[in-house]
Computed example of a mutant assay.
Amino acid sequence: MPKPSLKDTILDAGLKTMFRTGYNGTSVRDIAAAAGAPQGSFTNHFRSKEAFAREVLDRYFAHVKGCVAQALNDKSLTPRQRLRRYLDIITGRLEGDNWSRGCLIGDLSLETSTSSEALRARLDEIFQEWRAPFAACIAEAQAGREIDDAFKPNDLAEFLLTSWQGAILRMKVERSPASLERFKSIVFSTVLKEVEQ
């Protein structure tokens, strides 16, 4: 009888380890040890640490897409409220980690975009895919005259996600939600402010 695959265990352990020590600070040995797996199990499932990181990214992004869907698909809220709901959901998750752990997508963007073309390209694809539901929600808000249409939905969605990533990085340094709350206050008072009817 074949041995059960340890691939999912290794991916889960590697995701947690990379969150804690980063891509460059995490070795294959660290990942295997965290998974309680022999190092050979890692090399049986992944041709390189870079290939492993790509699968970790995909797994993490699937989780992020679930948070996006939870907020942006809630039709009981207006589009503008849905955008705010997403940021509030993420704030709650970051609070659960005592403001010390941010977004793996943002972390790996900083760490690997100049050293790994494969990861840089995958991160670019992730950001483009991530932006799409926000752009659609913003377009819906603009069509309903809920927010101003001075900017294109794609540009606003890009601004929202990029600036939010910066606020998360600052949060990690401060170990405080101040940058997140500041961002939400400013963005919903300016580019996403409610149009006066």
Rank of each mutant, 00 (worst) to 15 (best):
L77T: 09
Y60K: 07
L108V: 05
G40E: 14
R120Y: 08
R47Q: 02
E50N: 00
Q39V: 15
S109A: 15
C103F: 01
G92C: 10
L110S: 15
F127H: 12
L94K: 01
K49W: 00
R120G: 07
A62R: 13
L110Q: 13
E125V: 12
D58C: 14
R54A: 06
A33P: 00
T91C: 13
R122A: 08
D124G: 07
F42H: 10
A34T: 03
Q39T: 15
D107F: 12
T91P: 14
A62P: 11
V68M: 11
R59A: 08
F52K: 01
G96V: 02
F61R: 09
Y86S: 10
R85G: 12
H63T: 07
D88C: 13
T78A: 12
P79T: 08
L123R: 04
D97L: 11
F46N: 04
A34G: 06
R47D: 05
V64L: 04
L104N: 02
Y60V: 01
Q128L: 10
H63P: 00
F52Q: 01
R84G: 09
P79R: 05
S100I: 03
T114C: 15
E55G: 05
I126W: 00
I105W: 02
E55F: 09
T91L: 15
A51C: 00
R84S: 11
L104H: 01
T112N: 13
A33Q: 02
S48G: 00
A51S: 02
I105Q: 03
F42M: 11
S100P: 02
H45F: 02
T114Q: 15
A37P: 03
V68L: 10
K75G: 11
K65G: 09
D124K: 12
A118L: 11
N44V: 04
T78D: 10
E55C: 07
K65L: 12
T112D: 13
A62I: 10
G92W: 04
G66Q: 11
D124L: 11
G96P: 03
V68A: 08
V68P: 07
V68R: 09
G106T: 11
D88G: 12
G66W: 08
A71D: 04
P79W: 10
A62Q: 15
T112I: 09
F61K: 07
D88W: 10
G96C: 02
R47Y: 02
G66K: 09
E50F: 00
R84L: 13
I126R: 01
A37E: 07
P38F: 13
L110D: 15
R54K: 10
D58H: 12
G66P: 06
R93W: 05
T114F: 15
V56G: 08
R122W: 09
P79Y: 06
G102S: 00
N44I: 02
E95T: 05
G36I: 08
E55L: 07
K75H: 14
Q128G: 08
A37D: 06
L123Q: 07
A35W: 06
R93G: 09
I90C: 13
R120Q: 13
T78W: 12
E117H: 05
S48C: 01
G92H: 05
W99D: 03
I126G: 00
L108Q: 06
P38Y: 13
A34Y: 06
I105T: 04
L72F: 05
Q70R: 14
W99H: 02
I126K: 01
R47H: 03
